[in-house]
Amino acid sequence: MLRLRLERAPAPLWFRSLIPVIAVPVTFLLTTILILWAGADPLRAYYEFLIKPLASRVSLIEVLVKSTPLLLTGASVAFAFSAGYWNIGAEGQLYAGAIAGAWLGMVLKDVSPVIGIPLMIAGGFLAGVLWALGPALLKVRLNVDEVVTTLLLNSVIVFLVSYLLNGPWRDPVSMWPQSATIADGTVFFKLIPRSRLHLGFLVALVAIGVEWYVLKRTALGLRMRAVGLGKDAARFAGINVNRTMLTAALVSGGIAGLAGVGEVAGIHFHLIESISDGLGYSGIIIATLGGLHPFGVGLAALFIGLIDTGAQTVSQALNVPVYLGTVVQAALLLVTLSLFVLQNYRIRRA
């Protein structure tokens, strides 16, 4: 009889970088059953998912629009995770940025864009930092688990937004709970005329670039990576672990805040309850999928943006639920994480 045993043997380095690439076909194989169950042709579904959005100029731009907040939440999560700070609160920090954007859009009535737009960007970042501050302080002062606190604060701010939109900030002319339209001087200008692609996309690309520079080229970045990869070893080397984590947590919150202000100032022009709808959580998937490397995160965000865009067309074209896109995303994360674990083992004959 053939006997097999599992043995610990890490895969070579080149294999690790291939994991995201291998994860995609594996995910599609796994989700085939679901697509068949939904009554669609899997091959056509994958075509709609992956190829169709890239086939026309309009849908291609739409992929970039969808990717804009994802680039930022992905970058946000990756920044915190790099330092071993498990920020699950990008969702909430995004909402904080959106609130700040809506507020600035209301109070800055006749502002010139030259002043309004920088203020919006700064305000969104700052709001994200503030929303991240509590859990970060609890973590470094009292060692309270940040996974729990950042996650719980997400729900808190969703209700806060709901309160604002149904109460003091409610736009009386609108049928839906939403805030007043923001001032013209605070609207992000379009990168391509007559499209939805706005300044936020550029902000996201800059954020990714800066993040790469900080993580890979500065002392702070090396400290962060050292803390993330080996807390005790970092402490032994004289690195102030708490201060490093605090910095990572706050900047991470700020980047997520940028995503929120972008959605307000570039897409909706007012605050709505469903302004995020899980963009912050997608950021966790993207950060993981991108291996926490800023450029990997960029690619992963574009890929998830593609699937998100594809999920809409797939549901219309094949008459399947739009949630199928979410399922594929979740399956992708599970497959990727499993591969990261499984690569450490090898099956051998006993």
Binding site: L222, R225, A226, L229, G230, A233, A234, F236, A237, I239
Partner: peptide, 17 residues
């Protein structure tokens, strides 16, 4: 536990300064 295993030798050699 006192070197950061996933960082390079060069990085570990300067981590304290």
């Amino acid at each position: 536990a006192s070197v950061v295993a996933e960082l390079s030798v060069a990085e570990n050699l300067v981590l304290d300064q």
